[in-house]
């Protein structure tokens, strides 16, 4: 009699086990949005460390392999390691976005979203800045178009970068905590780009490490002719002072952030 009861009992336990699996939070999903943000520096303009008032018409970045991760323990970008996440979701395509789009009060640019992201905290993100294969940034990973003015001088500039960069970042550091996806809800993660790292910031002390490492705009201004500047890295290497060009190539990999949190650039 007891043996006859075994099979139903085993079946019952199996069903109960599967029910427990079904109730686990790992089956629930929400929407995870990916934003790109050039911050107010790009949207509103700023004054460089050497006194040039810079405004931006377009700042094109081309993003690929954009992936968010749930990491435990949390990913440490200073380790320089690749991100190993328990859960990860990715955007499927390569995207060229204009960080200057939308005016001074515009929100960060929505790059894409994953509507069936498993719930949990996406506390790490990685992406590549790659050369665009079409469009206004064709052939370049970064194109900065704008105007710089200083005591009666005006330079319309276009600075183009064809180097590619790969960023691995931890959790967003900012006003709010991002990346927490709840069932049926929407959360976001952000790729932040700090352009004050290139030009410096007049509102920051000149001896601050930010300004010490920044190129400023003056080295670019020296390359302008008749108020026009259109350069890529090849032209910069050929025409800039060696120390200025070196500062530029050293600082470009530090553009990528997560809010105020730093990233590792491979």
């Amino acid at each position: 009699m007891r043996k006859r009861m075994l099979l139903p009992l085993i079946s019952l336990l199996f069903v109960a086990s599967m029910s427990l699996v079904g109730c686990a939070p790992s089956g629930a999903t929400g929407t995870l949005q990916f934003h790109a943000n050039g911050e107010d520096f790009v949207r509103q303009g700023f004054v460089s460390k050497d006194g040039w008032s810079i405004t931006f018409d377009h700042v094109y970045v081309t993003l690929a392999d954009v992936t968010a991760y749930q990491t435990d323990p949390p990913y440490d970008p200073h380790s320089g390691a690749d991100i190993k996440g328990k859960v990860k979701v990715s955007l499927p395509k390569t995207y060229t976005v204009d960080l200057a789009e939308g005016g001074e009060k515009a929100p960060p640019i929505l790059v894409g979203e994953v509507k069936s992201a498993p719930v949990g905290h996406y506390n790490a993100i990685s992406w590549r800045m790659v050369k665009a294969s079409s469009g206004p940034a064709n052939g370049y990973s970064l194109v900065i178009v704008g105007t710089a003015e200083k005591v009666g001088q005006r330079i319309d500039f276009s600075i183009k970068v064809d180097e590619e960069y790969e960023y691995s970042c931890g959790e967003f550091v900012g006003d709010v905590r991002k990346g927490i996806v709840q069932q049926g809800g929407t959360a976001d993660v952000e790729m932040t780009f700090h352009f004050d790292h290139i030009f410096g910031d007049a509102d920051t002390p000149l001896d601050d490490e930010l300004n010490v490492g920044a190129v400023g705009f003056e080295p670019f201004a020296r390359l302008a002719r008749d108020g026009k500047l259109n350069v890529d890295l090849v032209a910069c290497r050929a025409k800039m002072a060696a120390k200025d060009y070196q500062a530029l190539v050293d600082i470009l990999p530090t553009l990528g952030h997560v809010g105020e949190g730093h990233c590792h650039c491979h």
């Binding site: 043996k3 075994l6 099979l7 009992l9 085993i10 336990l13 109960a16 086990s17 427990l20």
Partner: peptide, 16 residues
């Protein structure tokens, strides 16, 4: 609970 179910499953299969 899931671990107990799996173990119990092996025992039951063996008995069967």
């Amino acid at each position: 609970l899931m671990s107990m179910c799996v173990i119990w499953g092996f025992v039951g299969t063996a008995l069967y």
